[in-house]
Design a protein around this nucleic acid. Structure first.
Ligand code: FES
Ligand code: FES
Lengths: 141, 141
DNA sequence: ACATACCTGACTAAAATGGTCAAGTTTAGA
DNA sequence: TCTAAACTTGACCATTTTAGTCAGGTATGT
């Protein structure tokens, strides 16, 4: 069970945005350099963040991205969903009554994984970008 | 972020064991049939469970596996660790002071993922096989 | 002796991951 | 108006992981 780089990159990039977008839009090039993330990969990630209205973009020289909401209104949940880094504990379809191996009923562990999913999502729903900013300024030096 | 089948299978198989190993050892064939899991794959999984002293085996006719502890002493944590389904939220090495992209310091999101890892592991440490048995008998029919 | 069931290691198809590459379009500023 | 910075889109790809399969064993109760 692991978190992929895509999710981690998305959050890193948005924290970066939150810190630097107050005056000018921030270019992906800058983020790429500051955070050590491939520029091309960032473009894919921001395309999704934009579709999900988490960031806004300005084109042309001096263009870049800014957050479309305040840092405390952007929950980790929103970010991770946007880049398809959803928490998925089961293979079986939620709506269907069938179990994970095509059985007629849900398997004995199904409820457990459901609980786990809720447990994790709760964590993500509570945390906002703002929380990460605080955390980070506390840790300066 | 998703749980793989290996972890799910391990737990399913052990719940099965917990329900049926009271009289005789349970053969992997039986588990395979009841739970709809490939026999060959189960063998790989049980090899790890055995190495981690979660199950004991008896060979020969009427042989099979039994739990090596009581269901309430086997935590999900133990099971998932045994089959290498560890929770891994970061790429950067714990001991090292370096960050995830080879930077000199830990990145701004590092603490977050650490917290998440703890959050999830706490869940797994609390849950035992026994809990799943209860849960299941409640759900009969 | 023999069937049953555990044991071991090598192999593999398919999917996911973490990117790269190429070819645009838009727009601020000289 | 020309141009370079920066966003936009889509195709492509190497590597790794996953979820197995396959082919052989070895031990043991009857
Ligand atoms: S996990 Fe949903 S039925 Fe097994
Ligand atoms: S996750 Fe540990 S340094 Fe980025």
């Amino acid at each position: 069970m692991k978190l992929t780089s895509k999710g981690r990159y998305a959050v890193m990039a948005l924290v970066d945005l939150a810190r630097f977008d107050t005056i000018n839009p921030v270019s992906l090039r800058d983020i790429s350099l500051r955070q050590g993330i491939s520029l091309d990969y960032l473009e894919q990630i921001f395309s999704k963040l934009k579709k999900n209205q988490i960031v806004k973009s300005t084109r042309g020289i001096q263009g870049g991205y800014i957050l479309s909401k305040k840092p405390n209104e952007i929950k980790l949940n929103n970010i991770l969903n946007a880049v398809d880094e959803k928490v998925k504990t089961v293979q079986c379809k939620k709506e269907s009554k069938k179990g994970c191996n095509g059985k007629a009923t849900k398997c004995v562990t199904h409820n457990l994984w459901d609980e786990l999913e809720t447990h994790i999502n709760t964590f993500f729903e509570k945390k906002s970008l703002q929380d990460l900013l605080k955390n980070n300024s506390e840790r300066v030096n």
